[in-house]
Amino acid sequence: MRLIKFHTGFKLMLSLFLVVFLVGCKSAKSVIASGEASEKLSAKQVIRQHQKTQTDFKTFQAKVKIDIIQNQKEQGSTFNMRMEKDKVIWLSAKLGLARMMITPERVRFYNKLDNEYFDGDYKLLSDFVGVELDFNKVQNILLGQAIYNLKEEPHNVSVNNNSYALQPKDQNVLLELFYLVNPSHFKMDSLQLFQQLKKRMLQVDYASYQEVKKQILPQNIRIVAVEESDEVAITMEFKSVSLNEEVRFPFRIPSGYKEIVIR
Rank of each mutant, 00 (worst) to 15 (best):
F10P: 00
K11S: 09
K11Y: 06
M13Q: 04
M13G: 00
L16S: 05
V19M: 06
V19W: 07
F21W: 04
C25R: 06
S30M: 05
S34Y: 09
E36F: 15
S38L: 09
K40W: 09
A43D: 14
A43E: 13
R48F: 14
R48V: 10
H50W: 11
K52V: 09
T59G: 02
F60V: 07
Q61F: 08
A62C: 14
K63I: 08
V64R: 05
V64N: 05
Q70Y: 14
Q75C: 09
G76L: 03
G76I: 01
S77T: 12
M81R: 08
D86T: 12
L91R: 01
A93W: 08
L97C: 08
T103K: 11
R108V: 00
F109P: 00
N111A: 07
E116N: 07
Y122N: 03
K123T: 09
K123G: 03
K123D: 13
S126G: 06
D127A: 07
E132H: 12
D134C: 05
Q139V: 05
N140P: 00
L142T: 02
L150A: 03
E153I: 09
P154W: 09
H155E: 02
N156M: 05
N160T: 09
P168G: 05
D170N: 08
Q171D: 10
N172A: 05
N172E: 13
V173K: 14
E176C: 01
L180D: 07
S184L: 06
M188I: 01
D189R: 04
L193M: 15
L202V: 13
L202D: 07
V204A: 09
Y209R: 03
K214H: 06
Q219L: 11
V226A: 11
E227A: 04
E245I: 01
F249K: 04
F251C: 01
F251T: 00
P254A: 03
Y257W: 04
E259D: 01
I262V: 01
